[in-house]
Amino acid sequence: MATSIEVRNLKKYYGSVKAVDGISFSVGAGTIFGMLGPNGAGKTTTIETIIGLLDKTDGEIDVLGLDPDGDREELKKRIGVQLQNPSLFPRLTVRETINLFASFYPQPLSAEEAIDRVGLSESEGKRVESLSGGQRHRLAVALAMVSNGEIVFLDEPTTGLDPQARRRLWEVIRDLKEEGVTVFLTTHYMDEAQTLCGKLVIIDRGKIIAQGSPGYLIDKYFQERAVEFPDPGLNEEEKKALEGADLSKRVSYEEGDGMEGNLVILYSEDVTETISKAMDFGREVGKPIDGLTVRQPTLEDVFLKLTGRRIRE
């Protein structure tokens, strides 16, 4: 398989701050590549270094056979980029903005097509300053697509979108792949990375802590299942007892967000035994367990296991 991007031992330091600290990966042509990590992990810095917006401290980068340092201008013509928190001319309309950006590229997509793909047809006459956050985001993605580039870089494309808009954007990204475009995507949404990406790297504090396909990562780091049930109101003592009760490999607690209550998660390789022991435990302490579910582990679980932290902390 041909390679679109090859990165070796890339480093980007800001004084003593190591934003990116020696990462290596390759991106196959025509694939959706995901870089997953919490805020501040170094995702944006990586993208901006690959596209030549930032100078690297050390390492090697090859994009479409070009060096982002030396062949910056040539490279820009062949890629489309959506930056995080994009800013545009506030008083131009959606259509005017897309036309402007289209004029920069040698073989751009037509403005209609770009507008249509991100579903902005109804707002094409609106000024950028009057767009909602979600619309602005979709416009930014449209600007990356209008380049008709061989690689499209999307830096957290779905942050701040409602679930419906996110799903729509996922479709757009899948369509790009269908056309043979390589997509480089960063996200801190696990489900997004899991559904979209053929290959993933998980990055934390400037270093890659795991890479592979989502399935591979889950298999490698997780043979367990997650047994979840709403916290029946366990106090600290009871929580300790639950952890020491040898009914699962690990116990984790997830705080609810107001809509949902707190969750207790038991990671287990023997689900049946864990469930029955858990039910017994609940009866013993006089706090019966209700609404218990079993699910496949997600990348969220992988990240938690690898770093001991949640991804959105």
Binding site: K76, L83, S87, Y105
Partner: peptide, 17 residues
């Protein structure tokens, strides 16, 4: 204003000289 808001930065990723 365009510089501060990052509009110029957004243009910097395009082939616009």
């Amino acid at each position: 204003n365009l510089r501060e808001k990052g509009v110029l930065r957004g243009l910097a990723v395009t082939p616009l000289p």
